[in-house]
Structure formats: C-alpha cells, structure tokens
Simulated assay, not measured.
Amino acid sequence: MLGRSIALALLLASPAAAQEGGPRVELPDTGGTGPYRAIREVDATLPDHVVYRPADLGALKGRKLGILVWGNGGCSEDGASARQHLTQIASNGYLVIAPGRMLSGPGAPPSPPRPAGPRELKAETSAADVTAGITWALAENARAGSRYRGRINPRQVAIAGHSCGGLQAIIGGADPRVRTVIVHNSGVFTDGTNPIRGITVDKSMLRALHTPVLYVVGGKGDVAWPNGTDDYARIEHVPAALIDGDVGHGGTFREANGGDVARFSVDWLNWQLRGDRKAAARFTGKDCGLCRDPKWRFEKKGF
C-alpha cells in the first residue's frame, strides 16, 4: 500500500496533472535568463518529443551544445510539463529533449476530463523514450543538412528527470553515452515494490550508474524524500551529491525560469560536462555556494 500511495503521487507530479480539475494557470514563456534566448518546439525529425534549444544557433559562435535528455514528471507524455526548468537550461547553451507532446503551457490544448474512479498507475513514456533523445541528437550532429550539424559536443551528455521521470533517469543513467545524472524528487521505492505499470526499478540498478549523480529532494514533505535519500546513502561507487530543501515534491519547477533548482542544475551541468570552475564553486570547497545557503542542505561524497 505504501508503494502504491507513493506511486500515485509520482504519477500526479507533473504541473499539468496538478492542475486537473481547476483553472489552468500558465506562466509565460520567458526564453530563460542564460546568454541564449531559448525556445521549445517539435522537430519534424523527432515528432514524438519536445525540443528546447537556443533560438539563434548562430549566436553560439562555435560553442558546442551539450545534451540533456529529460524524464517527465509522472512519466507523462507532456514534454512541456517542466518547460520553465528546461528552457532555463537550454538558454545556457544546451539542447534539451523530453518525450511526448506540448500538453501544457501557453497554446496547449485543453486538458481532457479525467474519468471517474481509481486512476491506473501507468507510465505513458519509457526510459527508452528518454534516451532516444540522445540517439537523435547525435545523429543530427552528423547529418548533412541538419541545423545541428557540428554544433553538438557528443561528450557532453546528461540525463535527468522529475518524480517518476527521475526513475527513468536512473535507468537511463546506465547508458555509456551519459556523463552525469540528476534525479529530482525521486528514488527507487524503499519497499521493493513496482506499483507503476510500465516501469520496473530496484535498488540494484543504482550499481549501473557510472557517472557522478546529483539527487535533489524537497524535504520531508516530499513524498519521494525517503526514496531519494536512501538511494544517496547506498551509492558508494561513483561520486554523489544531495541537495535537500523544504520545497515539497513539486520542487521549484512551477517558478519562473525554474527557480533555484534550475540554477543548481545549470551549474551542475556546466561543472560536470564543461569543467566550469565558476559553476563548480557552488558545490566545491568548504565555503561553497550551497554550503552557505540557509534554504538548502547540501551533502556530497566521492569528489
């Protein structure tokens, strides 16, 4: 029963799902605050995913795009459910890819009415759908005529996800192309159950992680806090870090430009994928940025 109740919370974790049954309140698309104004779109060569990228690729001036593939909250097919967060990352020179369609945000179609009765615990997307974004991006980097030809660094690949999508990130983190993993408000079920149809995880999968991993959890009010903190405690074979703040299971995804967590995520990616020393200062040293931030508790090991 515990696993089922947690799973239901994970499946209802996307902003779109949270708004069902009431008026939809949408933040405007801002383009992010990074050096490259970002947009979201569906690319004709990848029609079942949403792509976030700098609007003007020419503005990169030779800088290569990193890749982040994303698991949606609730493992839903709403590739726009974390659009503020993902746009912010894209505005810092990343190509971000989420499975599904644009089902929330300005211009999204109305949410269909939910049927009465118990809701089936079912993932609408898979970990394979998430990692398909890596395959597509690397192919586009090599394809003649692609807008991305030669613009992507194939060594700068990350996977992340929120809630049920965080489980997809753990599964996909075994992919040898991945260089770092971020797990948001998620973790493998501590009671050993798999109550979400379409996704199977267990603690042994943590051993397949081969890169540094960051867990971000929302305090003890976050239904996934026990799972995520337990995962972090078990991981000893790769460098791992934990950021914990009293923001609940929804984190800061519904805030403009993704709030604090988007800023942490950009710095983590810039540090892990690009070796950026300024970004690393948020996480390293006795006087690190997160060490001095009273809103967040920070731990790390293996670095």
Rank of each mutant, 00 (worst) to 15 (best):
I196P: 00
V181A: 15
F253A: 15
A241S: 12
Y148S: 10
H210Y: 10
H210M: 06
G198A: 13
H237V: 07
I199S: 02
P176M: 09
L206E: 05
T180G: 06
G228N: 06
E255V: 07
V238T: 06
R155S: 15
G187W: 02
N185V: 05
G250K: 13
S204C: 03
P212G: 08
T193W: 00
A160P: 02
F189R: 02
G187Q: 11
I182D: 06
T211I: 11
G187D: 11
N257G: 01
T211G: 03
L206I: 06
V217G: 03
G166L: 11
T211V: 15
I199M: 09
V213S: 10
L214E: 05
N194Y: 00
G221H: 01
G251N: 06
G173Q: 12
R155H: 14
A208Y: 11
G221C: 01
R263Y: 00
V157G: 04
A262M: 05
E236D: 14
A174E: 07
R149V: 12
T229W: 02
G221D: 12
A169S: 14
W225D: 10
Y148C: 07
N227L: 12
D230I: 01
V188H: 09
V157S: 09
K203T: 14
R234E: 14
R155T: 15
G248N: 13
R254G: 15
G219I: 01
N194D: 13
G150Q: 11
G198T: 14
V238F: 09
F253R: 09
A262T: 03
T252G: 05
I170Q: 06
I182H: 04
H162F: 15
S163Q: 11
G145W: 02
G218K: 00
R151Q: 07
R234D: 14
T190P: 03
T211Q: 15
G251W: 09
A169W: 07
W225M: 04
I170C: 08
P195C: 12
H184Q: 15
V181Y: 11
L242A: 05
R149H: 08
V188I: 15
G221I: 11
L206F: 06
D202W: 06
P226Q: 03
R155K: 15
A256W: 00
T193L: 09
P195L: 05
G198S: 12
L242F: 01
S146N: 10
G258F: 02
R179P: 02
G187T: 04
D260K: 06
E236M: 12
N257V: 01
H210Q: 12
G150T: 11
R179D: 12
A241W: 01
H249E: 03
I235S: 07
R147F: 00
G198C: 13
S163R: 08
R179H: 10
S146K: 12
T200V: 14
H210L: 12
R263P: 00
R207H: 09
G172P: 01
G165Q: 13
F253H: 13
G228P: 04
M205S: 02
G187K: 04
S186G: 10
V183Q: 06
L214T: 01
R254L: 15
V223P: 12
H162T: 09
E236Y: 09
G165C: 12
A224T: 10
A160E: 13
D230W: 03
V261D: 13
E255C: 04
A160T: 03
I243Q: 01
P154W: 01
E236S: 14
R254M: 15
T229G: 04
